[in-house]
């Protein structure tokens, strides 16, 4: 049986029943611009001492309550560990968050597909080379938007 890379395999969720309260309007929890990791300056004021969310690109489209449950109260950057170029710069930027901007915590949110693990690996690499240490959390999201795991990463 051949399934291909789970990161690129076609899957159809159209039959899925959507439940939950869809009434009312929710405000965006985004407190900054830009957000793409190549575009942001790690020393931007919104990162100073902040709780930072480093999210894989696909996550925000997958998790229904992304703004309310994960973005709220945090500063964000997004990246794709599978397709983005120049990932060495990513590691340097994360390191700068830790050492220069003195962020409080880093939460890395990724999809369940194997290639997404690269983003956590980048965070770990930055943490190991940084002088300061901070708590780093990894949250893994299923393709249908469920939280599969949420745990603190060993330095």
């Amino acid at each position: 049986m051949m399934d291909g890379c789970p990161g690129a395999r076609t899957q159809d969720f159209r039959e899925k029943e959507t439940k939950g309260d869809e009434s009312g309007k929710r405000q965006s929890q985004l407190r900054q611009w830009p957000i793409q990791l190549h575009l942001v300056s790690p020393e931007a004021p919104y990162y100073q001492k902040a709780d930072v969310l480093l999210s894989a690109d696909c996550v925000a489209f997958t998790v229904g309550d992304f703004h309310k449950d994960y973005l709220k109260g945090k500063s964000i950057a997004i990246a794709c560990p599978k397709l983005d170029e120049g990932q060495d710069e990513y590691v340097e930027k994360i390191k700068s968050w830790i050492d220069d901007t003195k962020i409080n915590t880093l939460t890395v949110m990724i999809m369940q597909v194997p290639c997404c693990g690269g983003l956590v690996a980048m965070a770990q690499q930055a943490l190991q080379s940084a002088k300061r240490k901070i708590p780093v959390k990894s949250i893994v999201v299923s393709l249908q938007g469920d939280i599969l795991s949420e745990e603190w990463v060993e330095a």
């Binding site: 051949m2 399934d3 291909g4 890379c5 789970p6 194997p114 290639c115 690269g118």
Partner: peptide, 10 residues
């Protein structure tokens, strides 16, 4: 199914 993956960076 990693064989057909064009990246294979995992």
């Amino acid at each position: 199914g990693c064989v057909p993956c064009t990246l294979g960076s995992c």
